[in-house]
Nucleic acid binder design. Structure first.
Lengths: 343, 343
DNA sequence: TGGCCCGTTCAAAGCGCTTTGGAATTGAGT
DNA sequence: ACTCAATTCCAAAGCGCTTTGAACGGGCCA
């Protein structure tokens, strides 16, 4: 069933039927009603390809995700982000086009989406401190929004970010207030902007309280469970072991906890942990009761929903080209922190 | 830059240029070369919408995922599955269209994809024991493949599944061989086909060895960390606590381990665990060395890649409509299992 | 030299929709 | 009765591509 068939059945021209369905005013309410009902009865939806060819709009948003596990995207938070964005897309009638590419092929993927007119805009995931994709997208004129920011670039694009610096500054200060002096930072890859900013927050807090920064206590890697375990395990073996860990991911925090427990120590008494928590649906950190981990928390799913809305608003001309939204993470105190043990 | 522009620049007709780029034989190698180079030089890719309108093919595959967390999709394994499928799509020139929908709206999402001609086929995720989507897709004639199976339906569709029954049978037998008699089953939702089959395997093994099935030891819920913790915590408080746990998800297994350790017990000595392991990229269960958990293991990413290939082969007419692939899970012995403690 | 075939190119139609620029109908105003 | 504007509808062009059917030369054979 296509437009022509439908219009023939109704004894109307395709023009009128199209207008009736798209809410144009040049058609009487009586005919509109007749048309809409017939469309539903025959289960008619316009051919999306034809429609988009005619309108020049594709009603689709592109997401390019690199394959490599070095990157933080094909990873636990991805599903939740997509769920949030997908919610928004569904409500606004957009499709989501996912493109999984080899590392380094991201730029050409964006170019291809542009050349083939397959999307109206794209979402940039996992920006680096100095991310070439952003300047490139500007150049080729493909509307985009960024999940996160790129510190070293001019701040003239559209982004949504968590205030990573303040979150980790507050978390560090919280630990210092509890008497901790040796605080390890188990960070993500610091070429990633979020990790870079988290380190800044950590360092600001230490400097602010006149505590020297010990490079032997800071780590930057891909955030697996094993990374958390291995790092904590080695540190705890030392004489000058840290009394607290600040961790960038709940997954890695699980590893840190495992290392602590493997040594017969107790989390929250012998060793404290604060982790960042993306509020993932399946990793609920305490399930509404007292959280297991004290955490800086911000829902990545909500971020996805909001960011998608920003992009659509921009595409449809309802919003400026440089909306910027900063979420503040909440510091939720759980069972994993306590006063620093006296030596 | 479109076909017309490009052909004008070359002094050729659009026909010839199109044929040159699509590898048709009616064009001399000299012109083909000239055309291909010009296309690259001008960074030309055909407008995907126009192309698909003309060919009737869309070169896109649809994935519909329900929002609800009751379902197992917007969840840890989703990212890995997509990564695998995306790999295949990329290699074959297909796009992936993701549609996130309210629970229960899945069928209408498929219908809409069909009516709007926005995909050439779809992947069905998380089939129930008796899944209406499968019969519906048959009816509307949209090519599809299923990740998993639907036990109670005629077996005449295209699927790829892990042999869940045999995996859990073997795992159970392994525990029995170690002397365990009270084995708890911490399963996923048993309306889901995979969980249903896992229970079958578990029961077959017990029956085969003449061990009575204790309903008080089997559980069926959404597989969160907290579910594992809570379930194990309660069971271990009992006088007749199980000596082993068979768990359907690594995430929940983490919760079980936490409960064990919280009681000062040791995993692998006091209490054994076997879990299913989807070989997720960021949850590496032992990192190449001795696995932490003894596990039935099967890569969900590989499943995604293979299943995508099956669908494409089918769409392009290279394969039968009812290919069926059964992966056997590998039983990897790790540190979480040991002989049953003597009471 | 005429006729035929092959290799190469092209003009034009068509995919299913939107949208421009009328055309037909109606009703009110004078 | 006639004009004019508003209302309601339509024919046709166009979006950028593929594909059918035909044209055009040149080489080859008789």
């Amino acid at each position: 069933m296509n437009l022509k068939d439908l219009s023939r059945q109704l004894g109307l021209s395709p023009t009128t039927v199209s207008r009736a369905l798209n809410g144009y005013p040049e058609v009487s309410e009586a005919t509109r009603k007749r048309v809409v009902e017939a469309a539903r009865a025959h289960n008619y939806s316009p051919n999306a390809r034809a429609k988009s060819l005619a309108t020049g709009r594709s009603y689709a948003i592109g997401h390019v995700i690199p394959l490599s596990t070095r990157h933080e995207m094909v990873n636990p938070i991805f599903g939740d982000f997509i769920a949030g964005a997908g919610e928004t897309y569904g409500a606004s009638g957009y499709d989501m086009l996912l493109s999984v590419v080899e590392d380094g092929a991201e730029e050409s993927a964006y170019r291809s989406m542009r050349a083939r007119h397959s999307v109206d805009g794209v979402v940039v995931h996992g920006p680096r401190v100095d991310d070439p994709r952003i300047t490139m997208l500007h150049q080729i004129g493909l509307p985009f929004v960024v999940h996160g920011r790129s510190s070293r670039l001019p701040n003239d694009y559209c982004w949504l970010d968590v205030n990573n610096t303040s979150a980790f500054r507050r978390a560090t200060e919280f630990l210092i207030d509890l008497g901790h002096r040796r605080i390890a930072l188990v960070n993500g890859l610091e070429e990633m902007d979020f990790a870079h900013r988290r380190r800044q927050g950590y360092e600001e807090a230490l400097r602010g309280r006149g505590i020297a920064i010990d490079p032997a206590l800071t780590f930057s890697e891909e955030m697996t469970e094993y990374y958390g375990f291995r790092t904590a395990d080695r540190l705890l073996a030392r004489d000058d072991a840290p009394s607290a860990f600040l961790v960038s991911s709940l997954i890695s925090a699980l590893g840190v906890r495992r290392a602590i427990q493997a040594r017969g120590l107790e989390m929250g008494r012998d060793v404290s942990i604060i982790t960042h928590d993306d509020a993932l649906s399946y990793m609920d950190n305490g399930n509404g009761e007292v959280p297991i981990f004290t955490a800086t928390r911000s829902s990545v799913r909500q971020a996805g929903a909001r960011l998608a809305q920003m992009l659509i608003d921009r595409i449809e001309g309802r919003a400026a080209d440089t909306q910027q939204v900063l979420f503040e993470a909440e510091l939720r105190v759980g069972q994993s922190t306590g006063p620093a043990p006296t030596p």
